[in-house]
Structure formats: structure tokens, C-alpha cells
Write a protein that binds this DNA or RNA. Structure first.
Lengths: 341, 341
DNA sequence: GCACAAAATGAATACGTTTGCAAAACAGGC
DNA sequence: GCCTGTTTTGCAAACGTATTCATTTTGTGC
């Protein structure tokens, strides 16, 4: 099977007996064209199997109708679901997604360079580490950017994330009210703002009941590292009696390790609270008590914000923080008499 | 912040005091350019913040260096991992991935149209339903396509998948040798070749030990539907004593339902075998006996094949079927005396 | 310094569209 | 049929790059 040379609007024009402009106008929604020539053109187009070349179109319209989606890993189910939703949303608006996976330790600046070269109309970054300088560079080039689920100390770029601080605060006070004395924290990436905010909220939540954080170990949002972190936690003495984990993905690792490796009962021996509320967390084997992030809403806000910035000439950065919902399930001991809010 | 007009090679040329061609040559790896002018150009480029416009480049080179990745859902972890690997692989070859998510019941032909319009250099379809006519259309237009993990009754398009039949066959004979009498099958999408091949192998595997398939229910590769299918299975009488499930994603749903809803023990009351070997399957809570698909190898083969077809003028379709590995864990009763191979 | 090959350069063209502009076709009212 | 106002149409100029070809510059061995 040999490659056919692509058929152009000129060839269609010739066959239909009209000018090339007429053909072009047939494929532009708002252009002015008579019904008669439209029929002629569409007939010829179909006969030749013509499809407008979107590269050429992009060149002249200076818009690729493409969004760069950058993320660092897909092994936490939170992200695949977010990607799927974002994809559907953008497709509905006739935008395409260009996927960039950049490992946490990868050459982020290099990827950034390629993104900018690829002439995308906008950038949606999911939990990618964006240094302030890189963020500035984006803004300099004038490409709209929105950061999802991660923030950066630079006002100039739009960000949507959920209320990590209060999620952490709730976890801290809920565990305190459940009568726990030694609540520990399994962090995500130390460099991530999300993990830091959750941690801070957690510490403050405990403090509001006169407690301090018993220990902190680093799970780096990774399943295996979270297991290892759990082992370290329980090699300490005294052992924690509760754990707040920076993501459900890691929380499951913690649960598995607690139950099947350390032989502990949850929540009788240890309480566990996660963050995200991924589908796994609701499975009967886990029934994880957690803090729900409103994924749908986050994606909706982020895409809407990005599309808005693309359409408008002047880009003005906005920050949106979405509320979080405690999901009471079976892995954290419930406070006996008091109500929590 | 206002949008800056993009800086072009011509402006760089002017600043550097050279021709536009010289600038272009500086950014083409193999072009002939003196060290002296290269320095001048790069200096000017950096000063102006110039980046070659890949749209214009694509137009002239007739290659977008972009691959369409089409899939229907990301909620089975098999796919996110595959996507991540594919992405890394293509990025390393300086190709970009354009993501197309098309729901199982979505307008596939419409998406296909957009893919073709977007001038991708190749298409990688993961488990998407491609009708023969659509496949032919692809081949007609001359865009290289490779189907991953799904095949279609059309020789003209390249396909890589694993040995579904023998995976199913092994499951059937392993369950038979384990002394099960009433082994049932939870299918994936009925229209999918993978599910059908696994089913066929399973039936033949049972038959090789003189057994027949006790029942078939449809899970459509969906978690909830798999739960429902399990309920149906156990509403029947007599109940099955073993289940082969067309994917691990569904197998976990089956396990959850069996244990926590029907109060059955696995493998004492019922044995369960899955397919894929996703990370979840190895978690201590499940320890799912399953048939491993060599994801890494599948992606490697598929990407290599696609890149090869892109580079070569004439496209010749190839089929690659990769071997599958039984993973013996804890959800299926082991045969007592005999060895299986 | 010279002859010659090799390397580097610039002018010009092409890629396949969209779109402003002016000419042409059309419709309606007399 | 003529004048006016509105569509419809074709021409031609972009968009920003890669690349061919002819020309100029550089390098090498004497």
C-alpha cells in the first residue's frame, strides 16, 4: 500500500469548477457561500476524499486548536480520570489534547521548550512542578496556562486547586476527636504545594485540640514509597495510632502494609485517613475514610478558565480554590459523642 | 498581560545580519552552517526568545511529528500505564501524542474524521473498536495505523496483541485441573475480539479436560457491570465454583462482590482468574491469579512498528502476537498433583 | 599567490490554507 | 430596462518555515 499524495482544496476546486477560495469557504462555518456552489464543492470533495489540512489552517489562523496537557505520572487513578474528563471537555469544544508526560525527575525545562514550539493555544498542567521562572517564561510567551492541583508562588498564572489546607485541618481534628494521641503524616512530594498545604492544615487541626503531629514520613505520592514509609513509621516507638496520608493512592498502600505485613487492624489499632476519594477508596475491601476532591468541578473550572483565557486577548490570572468534602467510611475511628464540622 | 506577536526566523535573521535561510539551517540538525554564523544566529535567537514554529515546519515538511493515540476509557489501569509508556517512547523519538478519547458508544466515525484532518503521521489505537470499513478508510488515506490489544477482520492494518486464546486456554485447563466442575466466564465487550478470543480459549481449555463452560455473563470491561454480572451468576442454580474474568479490572469487582456481598470465600468456595496482571492484582488484599499481558513489550512492539511504517514509504501490515504468562497467586485453587504447562 | 574542491550562503519558491478587496452576479422596486 | 443594495465570487496576498540552486566564500596543496 503506497502513500497517496494528499488532495488539496485546489484539486477540489478544479473538479467542481470553482475557485479555491470557494472550496475553503465551504469548510468555514460562517463564510458566505451559495447553496448551489456548496453542493458542487461538497460533491467534488467527497469524490476526491478531501479533508481540509488543519496544519495549513493553523498557520494562517495562528491557532492550532490544541492544548498541551502535561502531567508527571498516571499511576494514581486520580489523574487518568481527570485526563479523561478534560479530554472529553476539550473535544466538545473542538480542541485537541497534546499529551506530555514528564517524570518527576525529568527534564522539565526541555519539555517546556517543546510545548512552546508546538504552538499550542493553551497549557493545562496537572500536578507538574512548575518553577516560578518557568511559569514566568510561559506568561512571557503569552500562552495561557492553568495549573491544576498544584500551585506556585507566582501570581501571574492561573491556578485551580481544592482546599487542601482545610482538608488537612479536618483530618487532624477528626482524628483528634476520635481520641487518637499519636497521629502521623505520610507526605506526598515534599516539593509539592498540595502536600505541604495538607500537612499544614493537619498540624493546625491537631493543634486546635492541643495535639502535635507525632511523626512525618515521605511517601512522595508513590505506592511503594508509601509502603516503605509505613514500615518506618511502625519501626518507631511509640507507634502512631493514626495516620493521615496525602493521597488515597498512598493510603491504600498504607492499609495493605498495615493489615497484611504488620498484622494491624484498621481502625481498631490504627486509624487511616486519605485524600482524593478515588474509586478504589470506596471498594468494600478498603472503605477508606478520606477527603474528597471535586474532580469534575476542578476539571470543569480549569478547562473553562483556560478556554476563556484563550479567547480573550488580555490574560488575567485567576485563582480558584474549590471546597473539599470529608467522606466518612470505615478506616478511621469515629468520635464518640461530639459532632465535627 | 497582553499577547506578544510571535517572533519569526526573519526577525532573527535581521538582528543577526544573515538570511532567513541561515536561521532555518541553524535549527535543522543536519544542515550545513558555519560555526561563526551559528553563534551569531543563536545569540540573536536567544535575545528575541525565538522558537521555530513547528506548524510552519510541518506544512513544508509534510510531517507533523504527531501520533494520534485513541482509546475509549482510562478507568482500567492497564491503559493509563500503556499510555504513559507509549508517551515516553514517542517523546524520546521526538514525536508528540494527540489524545483522542472516544466513549464506547461515541461517534467513532466523527472522531476518525478529526484525526485524519489533524494530519497526524500515524495512529495508535488502543482497544478501540475499529470497523473494517473504517480501517480500510485509514489505509486508503495512507496514514499508518497500528491496533493495540484489539484486532479486526482486515488484513491491511497492523495489529499487536497478546495470545488471548492461549491465555484463556490456560485458565480453562488450570481451573479444570484444580477440580472445578462449573467454571463460568465474565466477558468483556461482546464486540471485542480480545474478549471473544479469551472466551474461545477458555472453552477449549475446559473441553480439553472434558468440561463445558457453565455460564457466560457480560461485564463489558466495566467495574459496576462486572459486579452486576457476578450477582446474576450467583443467582443461578447450581452456582459456579470458578470464574474466569476477561480483565483484572473486572476480576477485582468480582472478588469484591463475592467476598463482601455474597459472603463467599475465595478460593475455598469459588476460584477466580483474571487477565492482564495490573498492579492492583498483586496487592495483598487480592493476590489475584491471572494471565499476564506483557504491556511493556506490547507498547514497545506497537510503537516500533508504527515508527517503522511512518519512515518507510510503502506500508505493509504486520501482525504480532505476544506470549502471555500465567501468574499463580491466591485466588484460584491449585491443582493437587499434576503440573500445568 | 594560484587552482581547485568543498563548504557556506542568500534569493526565491513552495507548502495548503484563510481572508481582504474589488468585481460580478443577483434580487427587488420602480 | 435601469438603479440600488446585497450576496456571492475569484484574485492575490499572507502565514513562517524548509529547501533547491546558483553564487560566493573558505580551505588545501602546491
Amino acid at each position: 500500500m503506497k502513500r497517496k499524495p494528499a488532495v488539496t482544496s485546489r484539486e477540489v476546486a478544479e473538479l467542481a469548477g470553482v475557485s479555491q477560495s470557494a472550496v475553503s469557504r465551504c469548510f468555514s462555518p460562517k463564510a458566505s457561500i451559495s447553496e448551489k456552489t456548496r453542493r458542487k464543492v461538497l460533491k467534488a470533495a467527497k469524490e476526491l476524499g478531501y479533508r481540509p489540512n488543519s496544519i495549513a489552517r493553523s498557520l494562517i489562523t495562528r491557532s492550532s486548536r490544541t492544548i498541551a496537557l502535561v502531567l508527571s505520572t498516571l499511576d494514581n487513578m486520580f489523574y487518568p480520570l481527570a485526563v479523561e474528563k478534560a479530554s472529553l471537555r476539550f473535544q466538545a469544544e473542538d480542541y485537541h489534547l497534546l499529551l506530555f508526560v514528564v517524570p518527576e525527575d525529568g527534564d522539565f525545562a526541555g519539555v517546556m521548550d517543546r510545548i512552546l514550539q508546538s504552538q499550542v493555544d493553551g497549557i493545562l498542567m496537572m500536578s507538574a512542578l512548575l518553577t516560578s521562572s518557568l511559569a514566568e517564561e510561559c506568561v512571557e510567551t503569552g500562552v495561557p496556562v492553568v495549573l491544576l492541583n498544584r500551585n506556585v508562588a507566582f501570581e501571574g498564572v492561573s491556578q485551580v486547586y481544592s482546599d487542601n489546607y482545610h482538608g488537612g485541618f479536618w483530618a487532624g481534628s477528626y482524628l483528634a476527636m476520635g481520641g487518637h494521641q499519636r497521629a502521623a503524616f505520610v507526605s506526598g512530594l515534599e516539593s509539592s504545594s498540595t502536600s505541604r498545604r495538607r500537612h499544614q492544615g493537619f498540624v493546625d487541626g491537631l493543634a486546635s485540640h492541643g495535639l502535635t503531629c507525632h511523626a512525618v514520613v515521605h511517601g512522595n505520592y508513590d505506592f511503594e514509597q508509601a509502603r516503605q514509609a509505613t514500615r518506618e513509621l511502625f519501626a518507631m516507638s511509640p507507634r502512631p495510632d493514626a495516620i493521615f496520608v496525602a493521597s488515597d493512592h498512598m493510603a491504600v498502600a498504607v492499609l495493605e502494609t498495615l493489615r497484611h505485613e504488620l498484622g494491624l487492624r484498621v481502625p481498631e489499632d490504627v486509624s487511616v485517613i486519605g485524600f482524593d476519594d478515588t474509586p478504589v477508596s470506596a471498594w468494600p475491601s478498603y472503605r477508606l475514610t478520606t477527603v474528597r476532591q471535586p474532580v469534575d468541578q476542578m476539571i470543569e473550572e480549569a478547562t473553562t478558565l483556560l478556554l476563556k483565557q484563550i479567547r480573550e486577548e488580555a490574560v488575567v490570572a485567576e485563582h480558584r480554590v474549590l471546597p473539599v468534602t470529608p467522606i466518612l467510611r470505615a478506616t478511621a475511628r469515629r468520635p464518640v459523642a461530639a459532632s465535627v464540622d
